[in-house]
Computed example of a mutant assay.
Amino acid sequence: MKTFVRRPEVLTRTGLSVSTLYELIKAGRFPRPLKIGVSAVAWDADEITEWQERCIAAQRDTSAAA
C-alpha cells in the first residue's frame, strides 16, 4: 500500500526548506508532488525515501573518491 506525505512531513524528513524543496523540484532533482484533491498535493513516501538513499549514496561515492 502506498503512503502519501504532505509538505510539512517532507520538510521534516528531508531537512529541506520550502524554497529549496521547490528549487529541487523545478530542477528535476526531487520527486514532484501528486495532486490528491482539488487543492491538495502530497508526495509518495517511497519516492522520498529513494531520493534520500540516492543522496546518501552520492555523498559516500564522493567521500570514497577523495
Rank of each mutant, 00 (worst) to 15 (best):
T20M: 13
R32I: 04
L16C: 07
P33K: 04
V38G: 11
E23K: 14
A65G: 00
Q52W: 01
Q59I: 00
E23H: 12
R6Q: 13
A66K: 15
T12E: 10
E50Y: 02
V38A: 08
A45F: 04
A27K: 15
Q52G: 09
D44I: 11
W43K: 01
R13I: 00
E9F: 02
R32L: 12
E50N: 11
A40Y: 08
S19Q: 11
S19H: 14
W51C: 02
V38I: 12
A58L: 15
E53P: 00
S63Q: 09
A58K: 14
R13C: 03
S19L: 13
V41E: 11
P33T: 05
E23Q: 06
T62H: 15
A57G: 04
R13F: 03
Y22P: 00
W51A: 01
R13K: 15
E23S: 07
A65F: 09
S19F: 05
K2L: 13
S39C: 02
R32F: 13
P33W: 04
R54K: 14
L34E: 15
D61E: 10
K35C: 05
L24H: 08
A58Y: 08
A57D: 12
L24P: 02
L21Y: 13
K35R: 15
E53D: 12
A45M: 05
R6W: 02
E50K: 12
R29A: 02
A42D: 07
A64T: 07
I36N: 06
S19N: 15
K35N: 03
P8C: 10
E47N: 06
